[in-house]
Amino acid sequence: MKLPAPNALLGGLLIGVLLLVALTGAVWTPYDPLQLSFRAKLAAPSAMHWLGTDEFGRDVLSRLMAGAATSVWISLLTVTLAVTLGTVIGVFSGYLRGWFDRIVMAFNDALLAFPGILLALGLLAVVGANKYGIIVALGIAYAPSVARIVRGTVLSLREREYIAASRVMGNSEGFTMARHILPNCIAPLTVLATSMFGYVLLAESALSFLGLGVPPPAPTWGNMLAGSRPYIGQAVWLGIFPGLCISLTLLGINLLGDAVRDKLDPRMRGM
């Protein structure tokens, strides 16, 4: 057994640390993330508060740890929802073609014409602004782009001779889709899902910033980043640490995503 590639190792390490922090944050944090302390407001990083405190004197490290669970959980569920929804639509559309494809894709393109965040805002107004509202709204907002890409992949796959071979064998359309089309879509899907994870993390923070995200005082990386804006001059650590968390998470997910894609592709084995 040879060592995995350094990229995969670094990605795995980052995501491992993230999961550890998120799990720890759910049961224990150095301070109560909601505990106000007006004596220590906007304190710089020190031995007492490793990453400093915010405008209400809440410990930034504790809030980051508690927020990790919320942010990662929201992003993961949202990406899963968007990818599942988009893949189902894309595979059916691309494989079945005909009127089904035309109607679904016309609707899909209409959704794509809206900026994702605007669409999510509208949906949030309907489903309500809370954790699960965000997941549903962002999931629906991001599904059309997945559907587009999956459909394109399926269109080229369905002309391959192995799809014709499957039909000549007598396999049903459903079996052909599940056995031959879907597994061959995995490569573009992993790339898409990992990059989408980043967008969703940012979108969640944007929604939080607009006051439609996870309602305060509960911490998420997004609303911490958003909340740091007025204090950027006096307390730069307020913005830097949540930003760093988001960046490192994205880096980890992207590296790990590439490694997973290569692992799942038999053509890349032994290289």
Binding site: E161, Y162, A164, V168, M169, G170, H180, N184
Partner: peptide
């Protein structure tokens, strides 16, 4: 139909695209 489907098979031209790579 099933008798036909089971008994009529095909070999394709391009051995690179007629086998599912996965």
């Amino acid at each position: 139909y099933w008798d036909y489907r089971l008994n009529c098979q095909m070999v394709f031209q391009d051995p690179y695209s007629s086998l599912d790579p996965r």
